[in-house]
Amino acid sequence: MKQLLSLTVILAVFWLVNSGHYTPLLLGLGAISIGLILYLSRRMEHVDGEVEPSIVMSIHLPFYLFWLLVEIIKSNLDVVTRVWKGEAAISPTVFKVKASQKSDVCRVLYANSITMTPGTITLDIDGDTFEVHALSEEGKEGVLTGEMDKRVSKLER
């Protein structure tokens, strides 16, 4: 129920933001569209039997995203210097790291955060073990300190 409500709110905001025309006709059509989509996504859930909150609701989320942005900028600069230095500056490695998150959504968030920071990419997920490919030793160290892991886990509470 809670999930349905949040989906409705998100869809309504999406429609209003995109539309830019607030005549009764278009608002009505928007309401009909949202209804149709809620119906369809209900059916999809019935079929794949997967009901889970698709968004992380936590007051920590904005702080996390800001921290992630800073990380992205830092690692971008790192990769950029490596690109211009050429092949000599890279030493690709593959390693495994444990994720401490409980829910699937947070694990996905963690894995995607790893991928989003250039220099590290999540190759595969097996349970709570991620296989990560890093462009350099420094990138590997950065993931292994587990700071990102801790920060994502904090979102679950």
Binding site: I10, F14, S41, D104, I125
Partner: peptide, 27 residues
Amino acid sequence: LILRVIAKALIPLILLYGLYIQFHGDY
């Protein structure tokens, strides 16, 4: 896993976007 979760959240938005394009063809 990742695809499943991401797509699950994205599909309703794409559907709505399709309908938005449908009804705003006038503008």
